[in-house]
Nucleic acid binder design. Structure first.
Length: 487
RNA sequence: CGCGGGGUGGGGUAACGGUAACCCGUCAGGCUCAUAACCUGAAAAUUGCUGGUUCGAUUCCGGCCCCCGCAACCA
């Protein structure tokens, strides 16, 4: 029998800035789901990568006075390194929008959309601030003026661009939403995008003049234009599967997959759940199946993180200080699955001590010490540790993770940890062993089984810790050093 | 009347028609298998304000106040 397949992707971070905690959260969550599905026996295709075209990157490289490609190569390497540092599944697919295959795919995609009659040319006027030397959008302006240079009049630059007929997809999108009642999660985000589409859609420009900004995918049959970075970047979700060359892979990984999940932050709601879906429709390709929207990690007091406020958090620094499992723990358990959540180093340390050092770490030490000293042999554990259907994993945990509520799923694990601590306190096997060895051994074996179940659930979230615990149970050893040293 | 999210003990969150649960912190006690860990108990919330529905609302409805995103090409 052929394995069921599952597709999951993050958005591709734009390489004009250092990796930030928000993206770390997104990719860790996607990884948790990917690992979970793998545990269930799915053939999982897990995609991430880097978005490398566009004006901002072009300018950034110019500022640094290095070739754009070189800048992108270095930046992409940084994000690749990040995936290792965060303990992301090693088999993750890493796509770069500058990969030749992706570029070819983007051009093929364009051709199909064009063939369908959804691309046309028209004048596009850009508001340009000479002071900033940047194009400005209306939302950036205050009273129609650049807030940084309010005395200067904005220049209006007219250029001819290609546009995508987004407007004609309003009803098709609404119909698609209707047919897929959980297309966007959580539901309040789904409502938001529905309301947005109902208000009416405007066509958007999808190219730029190559003479002004050459760093992009060349438009087929018109070398004077390059694709606007959004358009090309979104296509990665299918070019990564092999489309259009390997149709078989595309069909297996995307078209016929049992799940096609796109994880993204709330700032990406429109792009993922409306624009990209319309683009797929225009190219005659099947839609995604689920879009999961994360909240933001904020600074103290719910304030937005920003460099100017100095409240940003570097995920690599945390990994260096506390380890990747600690960061994964925090992002899974302490951060709301769908709403904004604050982050401070103080909170992080508290959570680390409470959940990891005092929680799972301490429990492993106390249970395995008793087991090592009082059991003649390791307990028998389910042979196939990867078999999540064996009944070892509680149903409520399964349900929570299946609805992408990683926070709730994590809480269930820690309930089990607390329960085990209570059992030790109430039944005192360490004392009972002196008077009724058989009974005490029974309790200790039961505790080992409970610990094994906990390790099973921990698998997708803290893969290393899960493996370590299982190994200790199998060899009936207490850890030589604490799993998580108290900080 | 642009759209959406939120206001719950000192901090962070949960619940959701029947007087509030959890984590951190504080205080007192217990245990000794364990990482100054673990367990028990205590102090601490009129659940933003205000009307209404109801036998009963934190939970439903209306009004108001405040905070935060988004408001289209911000990749």
């Amino acid at each position: 029998m052929k394995n069921k397949t599952f597709y999951i992707t993050t958005t591709l971070p734009y390489v004009n800035a250092e990796p930030h905690i928000g993206f770390a959260m997104e990719i860790i969550r996607a990884d948790i789901i990917a690992r979970w599905k793998k545990l269930l026996g799915y053939d999982v295709f897990f995609n991430t990568g880097t978005d490398e075209h566009g004006l901002k990157i072009y300018r950034k490289a110019q500022e640094l006075n290095i070739p754009v490609q070189k800048y992108c190569d270095e930046a992409a390497q940084k994000f690749k390194d990040l995936t290792n540092m965060l303990g992301i599944s090693p088999e993750v697919n890493f796509i770069r929008t500058t990969d030749p295959h992706h570029i070819a795919a983007a051009q093929e995609f364009w051709k199909r959309v064009d063939k369908g009659g959804f691309i046309y040319k028209k004048n596009y006027s850009v508001k340009y601030c000479v002071g900033c030397e940047l194009e400005k959008t209306d939302s950036e302006l205050i009273n129609g003026r650049c807030p940084l240079h309010p005395l200067q009049d904005l220049e209006i630059i007219e250029e001819e661009n290609y546009f995508f007929k987004f407007s004609v997809f309003q009803q098709k999108l609404l119909d698609m939403y209707e047919k897929n009642p959980s297309f966007v999660l959580p539901d309040f985000r789904f409502n938001e995008i529905k309301a947005f589409v109902k208000r009416g859609l405007e066509d958007f420009s999808i190219s730029r003049l190559a003479s002004k900004m050459p760093w992009g995918v060349v438009v087929p049959r018109d070398e004077s234009q390059v694709m606007f970075v959004w358009f090309d970047a979104l296509i990665n979700y299918i070019s990564s599967t092999g489309w259009p060359d390997c149709v078989a892979d595309f069909e297996r990984r995307w078209v016929n997959a049992d799940g096609v999940v796109q994880y993204c932050g709330k700032d990406n709601l429109r792009q993922q759940s409306a624009m990209w879906q319309a683009m797929l429709m225009a190219a005659g390709l099947p839609n995604s199946k689920t879009i999961v929207i994360d909240g933001f990690i904020t600074g103290e007091g719910g304030v937005k993180m920003s460099k100017s406020l100095g409240n940003t958090v570097n995920p690599l620094k945390i990994v260096t200080q506390y380890g990747k499992e600690a960061l994964r723990y925090y992002l899974a358990r302490e951060v709301s699955s769908f709403e904004d959540s604050p982050f401070t180093m103080e909170k992080f340390k508290e959570a680390y001590n409470a959940g990891l050092a005092n929680g799972i770490g301490n429990l492993v030490s106390r249970v395995m010490k008793m087991a090592q000293d009082n059991l003649e042999a390791p307990i028998k554990v389910p042979v196939s540790v990867g078999d999540a259907t064996s009944g070892a994993i509680p149903d409520d945990f399964k349900a929570a993770i299946e609805r992408f509520d990683i926070h709730a799923a994590s809480n269930i694990i820690w309930q089990h940890i607390s329960e085990a601590d209570h059992i030790i306190q109430d039944r005192q096997p360490f004392k009972l062993i002196k008077t009724d060895k058989v009974a005490a051994q029974g309790i200790i074996r039961d505790l080992c089984v409970r610990l094994f179940v906990i390790a099973q659930m921990l698998g997708p979230i803290l893969p290393d810790t899960s493996g370590t615990i299982k190994e200790l149970i199998k060899t009936n050893k207490t850890p030589a050093t604490p799993l998580f040293v108290r900080k």
